[in-house]
Every structure is written in C-alpha cells, then in structure tokens.
Computed example of a mutant assay.
Amino acid sequence: MPDSQTFLSIDLPALLAATLACLSCALVGNFLVLRRQSLMGDAITHAVLPGIVAGFLVAGTRDTFPMMAGALTAAIIAAILIELVRRLGRVEAGAAMGVIFTAMFALGVVMIEQGAARQVDLDADCVLYGQLEGILWFAPQGWASLADPAVWADMPRQVVQLAAVFALCLTLVLVFLKELTLVSFDPALADTLGLKSWMVQHGIAAMAALAAIAAFEAVGSILVIAMLICPAATARLLCDRVPAQLGLSLLVGAATGIGGYLLGAFGPHLLGYDQSVSAAGMIATLAGLILALAILFAPRYGVLARRKRLGTVDGVLV
C-alpha cells in the first residue's frame, strides 16, 4: 500500500477524476436509457475521436480548447451525417448511427497513426483506456495541507474540467427535470403541450457529448460507454420514479468509480502481484458486474423475480 504522500499525489487526483467522470456520465445516461437511445452514447464516444485527434494535430498540445473544439465539430458533423444517411438511405436511426460512428472511429484511428508520425503524444491506448494513472497532483504535502486553498487551486486540469462539467450537467437536469422527463417518456404529448421536444432531445444529446468529451482524455472511450449505460440501467431496474432513479444512478456511479479504482490500483497487490491493472478497465468491469446483479436480483424487474411471478397462478406455485 502507498504512503500518504504517494496516495495524495498519484492516487487521489486519479480517483477524483474517475469518480467525477462516472458521475457525469451516469447522470446524463439516465435520459438516454429512458429514451431507449443507449447506443447514442456509444456513437458519441466513437464519432468525436477524429475531432479530438484533429485538435491535437493542429494545436500540437492536449490543451482543453483545441480538444473541445475538435470534438464538438466532429459531433456536429456526425449528427448531420447520421440524419443524411437515415433520410437518403431510408434506414432505421440505429443503423445510421452504427454506420457513421464506426466509420468516424476508423478515421480517428488512422489519424492517430499520423499523429504518432508527427511526434504528437497520442496513441490508441490513450483513446481506449484514458490516462488516469498520468493525472498527478504534487501540491499537497500531507493531509494537513489540504486545508490550504492554494493547494486546491493547483488541482490538475482534468479534475477541474470534469468537476465543472458535472456541475453544469447537474444544474441543467435540476432546472429542466420536468421537461426532460416528459420528453423522455412521451415526446408527442410534450409537443401537444407546446414544448418543443426536438430541442430537448438535442439538449440531451449535447449533454451526453459534453460529458463524453470531458471524460474522454482522462478515462478513455471504454469507461465512458460503460458509465453512460450501466449506472442508469441498474437504477432503472431498481426503481420506477425518475428522481429516485437519478439519485440511485449517481450512487452507483460514485461507488463504481471509487470501488473500481481502488480494486484496480490496490487489489492485485493484496493478492501478492506486483503490477496493478487498468483502473478504467476495472471500473467498467465493476459497473457491468453491478448491472448483472441487478438484472438477476432486482426485486421487481429481475430475472428471478419475474420467474417467480410467472410460476405463480392465483397464489398457487405451479
């Protein structure tokens, strides 16, 4: 186990980044799950890759602005292309998304190779797994130093960025919860009541893109996809009311982020191994395991509960 200084400088910033990324994605993912558009999270995380790489290649740096600008541009292009394929090709929306995001992800991988040739520090491992282990915070000099505001002012950029995105998404959800809920369940009724459902739908997609882009550099595409779906789907299996679902998904996201990082970083050492495992990979794995448990054991919608109800007729077990 690391000493306190090592934990504060290496593990704490990575743990904060992972948890904030999980919270942001879990919060926004609820509305993708409610609208049966979980594939959109996958599409967004793949489609923005060429934009992110383009930002790196043009600016030659990992600064926030070129990354965000490139990713948002790619997201807009992807949305336009998906709509064109859907209308001109007369195919289902899910198929159109599948065609566009796989093509754009492949383009991004090709561009990564060009970046390597131009000595830009970007590779496929960064894209898939993120760089949680590379988020370092050297300002704290022991636990007592955390009481100094100057120490927190030197927090790594990725953590600050993820905290700002989570705060923005949480504020938007709290302010527009009624509209988001209505459009997620019945967009036709929303239109009848004078609410422009298409604007809300695009707002949900924009929040999902923002959360994915902010988390992309730190945790990679695998974790973003998992956290956009697993906490929200787990919460949906365990409750019926949207406010309760939102709160439960945040609890699952936080528990998954913290537990997955600690298991990945320190679990192998407790078992006698010298090397840790990928923190992002372990977080995604834990999210999948929690969802699997909910699928099996949820008190109302779980597999075992449904089989028990189907096996009972008029109170008699058959």
Rank of each mutant, 00 (worst) to 15 (best):
P140F: 06
P149H: 10
V109G: 00
L132D: 00
V120R: 05
A106D: 01
D148H: 06
G115N: 00
P140S: 04
Q119E: 14
A116R: 15
A116D: 14
A124P: 08
A150C: 07
G115H: 04
D154V: 14
F138W: 03
A153H: 14
S145Q: 11
V160T: 14
I135D: 03
V160Q: 13
Y129L: 07
L128P: 03
Q131M: 08
V160G: 11
A139Y: 01
W137N: 00
Q114W: 15
F105V: 09
F101P: 01
E133I: 07
M155W: 01
D121L: 11
Q141H: 12
G108H: 09
A147R: 14
V151E: 07
A116S: 15
A106H: 03
W152N: 02
G115Q: 00
P140L: 08
G130F: 00
G142R: 15
E133D: 11
W152M: 01
A150M: 11
D121Y: 07
A116M: 15
M155I: 12
L146T: 08
A147T: 10
M155R: 05
L107M: 08
L136W: 01
G115T: 05
L107C: 02
Q158M: 09
Q119M: 13
L128I: 03
G115C: 04
A124E: 12
F105D: 04
Q119N: 14
A139Q: 02
V120C: 03
L122M: 11
D154A: 15
G108V: 06
D125L: 08
D154R: 15
D148L: 05
A124M: 15
V110Y: 07
M111C: 09
E113Q: 14
I135G: 00
Q114A: 14
D148G: 07
A139N: 04
D148N: 11
A150F: 10
V120N: 01
F105W: 11
L107A: 09
A139F: 04
G142V: 14
D154C: 15
G142W: 13
S145M: 13
R157K: 02
